[in-house]
Each structure stands twice: as C-alpha cells, then as structure tokens.
Design a binder for these strands. Structure first.
Lengths: 113, 113
DNA sequence: CGGCACGGTAAGTGCTAACTTACGGTAAGT
DNA sequence: ACTTACCGTAAGTTAGCACTTACCGTGCCG
C-alpha cells in the first residue's frame, strides 16, 4: 500500500515542486515540465512515483494526461504524522515530568555498568 | 528555515527507523545503533540530519547523548501537510463537480479539528 | 593519574536514483 | 491516410548520499 512510501515520494525536491504546482489546480505533463528545470520524461517518471504513493491521480483527456492531487495519499501521510506527533508530545511530557521530579536516570536499558 | 526539510529527513528508511524507535522513549546513540543494522557513526550522522530538521532534540548526560523526539519539527510538517491536504480536497471537489466521471477511486473525507 | 566508555567528525567507497536522449504508441487535426 | 502533438518507456550516464573504518576530544571510574 502506501504506508511510509509517501515520505519517500515527498523526499525529492522536484517531486515537491510538482505537488506545489498541482496545488493550484490540475495540469498536463507538458505544462508541468514547462514550469520545471527538468525534461518531460523526468516529470513523467516523478508522476509515476507520486501516483504509486497515492499522492496524485490521472485523468486521461485525449492524448493528454491531466494530473491532480489525490486526497487519499495525503490522508494516509497525515495520520502517520499525527501518531508521531502524539508520541513526540508524550515523550516530551514524560521527560519534563522526570526532570521536575528528580534526576532519575533509570530506564529499561541493557547497558551494564 | 526548515519548512520542507522534514520530508527530506523522513525520506530515508533508516532515519524513519530511528524515529520509530524514539517514539517509545528517549535513547542514547549506542542504544539506537544496537537496534539498527548500521554502525554507530551512521546513526550519529542521521541524528544530525534529524536534529537540523528539528525532529529530534538532544539532552547531554555525562558523555552520553540522550535523543528524543522534538514536537517542533513535527508541528511544522503537520501544518505543511494540512495545507496540501486541503488543496488536494479542493481540487478533487472541483474536478468532481465539473464532471461526474467515475474513476473507481475510493477516499474518505475525515476532517479533524 | 591512567585507562575506558561514549560519541561526533573526517576521509573514502559503493549503490541508488534522478536525469538525459532516443524511441514507440496513441489520439486528434487536415 | 498522412502528419502532428502528447506522453510513457528503455537504456545509459552521473551525481548524491548512506555507509564504512579510523581518529580524536570529552567525561567516569579504577
């Protein structure tokens, strides 16, 4: 599916540029390539990656392929990130609490003295 | 700034493993490396990247460096992703409204606070 | 005070992937 | 039917980065 693949997909700067462009509305491959410093085939390959990550969807119109953002993949990314966010907050709160109590350095570590 | 840098940081699988490990609580560099298939220096380098992206924070305890998740970077990522998600939804709604086409797509519209 | 554990940095290597040009296949216009 | 436009794929090159070993500074304990 698309568990963490979305992060891999958005890890590339060119792919993020494509997403940024698609934020303002659907566009064809040629239009996307025209606004980017790379060739059309490169854009096509990036779109393939984004599509496999569920971040974009395609709508064929004649020989032109109109790409648009797909909410599906972004929703998955969002929930992943939300979990991380919650755990980060919990860890932060726990650390702050331990700090307030005492200088406790006791954890479930297997580090022998 | 580190607006999108977080996506770059989370684009690497080893770095995501580190984050996953830190979800359960703080850990030292040696502990992190012990649970990963890479060497300690590699972990150190990854932690540097994560720290520069604002995703982790350090707490020096003697010669040991205790790393933990930092809510700051995740908050930034979250808002970035929220904007993208909203635009994706808007684009989808506009497209669906313009045409009644059925692409066999299946997405849920859950909108948290 | 001398050895030891911990971890960050330097230098070098290999593999992944982003990019290129070239080609083929499909749909629309004339 | 021929031509033109649009796009995906193949093959090959190159640049970046993840990883390694080696080294050094720092803080604990004997």
């Amino acid at each position: 599916m698309v568990p963490y693949g979305g992060f891999e997909a958005l890890g590339d700067a060119t792919r993020r540029s494509i997403v940024e462009r698609l934020r303002h509305g659907p566009a064809s491959v040629g239009e996307l390539a025209a606004g980017l410093p790379v060739s059309r085939p490169a854009v096509s390959q990036h779109l393939k990656v984004l599509a496999e990550a569920g971040l974009v969807a395609v709508n064929a119109a004649g020989t032109r392929r109109i790409y648009r953002l797909a909410p599906h993949g972004f929703a998955a990314l969002r929930s992943e990130l939300d979990q991380l966010w919650n755990d980060a907050l919990a860890a932060f709160a726990a650390a702050a609490e331990a700090e307030g109590e005492a200088d406790g350095d006791d954890e479930r570590h297997e580090r022998p003295a």
